[in-house]
């Protein structure tokens, strides 16, 4: 797994590439916690993400709950077909803000 962060206007974008599973979830959680603690608007770039398991979903859920507490949503874009399928099976596509493109994720209020 590789994690990188960038900022576009007032949105902090965290790109997670490779696999987000039980092996990599602790590192992803640490990185995401650090961003969520100080950022108002957070987007996840999944365009390089190969697959995600429930350990990864738990990390996303934790971050989404923290952002929700401050009135924000966790924006996610760039899902491949497999990640999209896991989101749909788990019901996460209904509770997280998934966008078809980076532009739409950043434009969302």
């Amino acid at each position: 797994m590789q994690i990188s962060t960038r900022t576009s206007n007032d949105v902090d974008i965290v790109a997670i590439a490779g696999s987000l599973d039980s092996t990599t979830a602790p590192e992803a959680q640490k990185a995401l916690d650090a961003v969520v603690a100080v950022a108002r608007k957070v987007a996840l770039d999944f365009s390089g993400l190969d697959y995600i398991s429930s350990a990864g979903l738990r990390v996303l859920l934790g971050a989404a709950k923290k952002l929700r507490a401050s009135g924000q949503s966790l924006r996610i874009f760039g899902l491949n077909q497999s990640v999209r399928e896991v989101f749909e099976i788990s019901g996460f596509s209904a509770i997280l803000a998934v966008y078809p493109s980076e532009a739409e994720a950043l434009a969302a209020r």
Binding site: L61, R68, E85, I89, S90, G91
Partner: peptide, 21 residues
């Protein structure tokens, strides 16, 4: 899997994913 983000307990999804995938 129909609960909202606030209501949802953390975890419990793994085996469900295996069955479905």
């Amino acid at each position: 899997t129909t609960l909202s983000v606030e209501e949802r307990p953390v975890g419990g999804l793994g085996i469900h994913l295996v069955r479905e995938l």
